[in-house]
Amino acid sequence: MVQAEDYGRYETAWCPGCGNFALLEAVKEGLARADLAPHQVLFVSGIGQAAKAPHYLNANVFNGLHGRSLPAATGARLANAELKILVQSGDGCNYGEGGNHLLAAIRRNVDVTMLVHNNLVYGLTKGQASPTSESGFATKAQPHGPTAEPFNPLAAAVAMGASFVARGFVGEGEHLAELIKQAVGWRGFSLVDILQPCVSFNKLNTHAWFKKRCYKLSEDYDPTVREAALEKAYEWGDRIPLGVIYRREREAFENKFPATAAGPLGVQPVDSEAFARILEKYY
């Protein structure tokens, strides 16, 4: 059995008290519970404090551009469907810069797990509003609060019929590890929005603020009913639900490409006979 310790423990560049620490531990625990060894896993990340997370564990890593993790993960998945791929980045990277790719990934149903560190603020660039920042959240860049309404990633994902939509909270580490285990075990696109405080730049949505509001969905909540899921996805304010909000069986994206059935593309030979046949078509 794989142990969380197999994923190692490294020094980080994060602030003391950052929500990322608990999140990182939950990721390791979730992968270990799914019995995935480090070399079987590929993390694709973007830019931001969250996107550094894969550097602090043992795994394959493609740490690409800001906002572009999903396309890179999509390409990697098509090239090698034997890899277990996780996208890991923050709310700015995934919901702002890379918003178009999120819509496309949900539509495609790419078999990757997207872990969004959602602290409702930009940390790396020091405290500007993020796509999920609440109205009235004043920053140096938005002295009167964000000029746009916050993005609701769960409602958007449910409305688009995403295959697996969940929310975790770093203050509920055991629950979060279990959610991650379920997400990586799910066949299709899985979104796990993870609430966390930013101790340096978000003085509104603090650990205590989340702790007071977050509650776990009860055992008898049925995540397969879209209307109910949408209602849960909109629940925000006094009470914030945690757990699998919505689930829907869908055909995996790579099944639409017959070439992927032969195994990883990188080790497939050139079919000289097929090439010769194709040349004939141009005669």
Binding site: F62, P71, A72, G75, A79, F257, P264, L265
Partner: peptide
């Protein structure tokens, strides 16, 4: 016939990042 994967991306930014992800993974 040749075992290729070709995908129309949502934009050119996605196209090149997909290609890089695929290439990193060996294709």
């Amino acid at each position: 016939e040749l075992g290729l994967v070709v995908e129309q991306a949502e934009d050119e930014i996605a196209a090149i990042n997909m290609a890089l992800g695929a290439s990193y993974a060996g294709a």
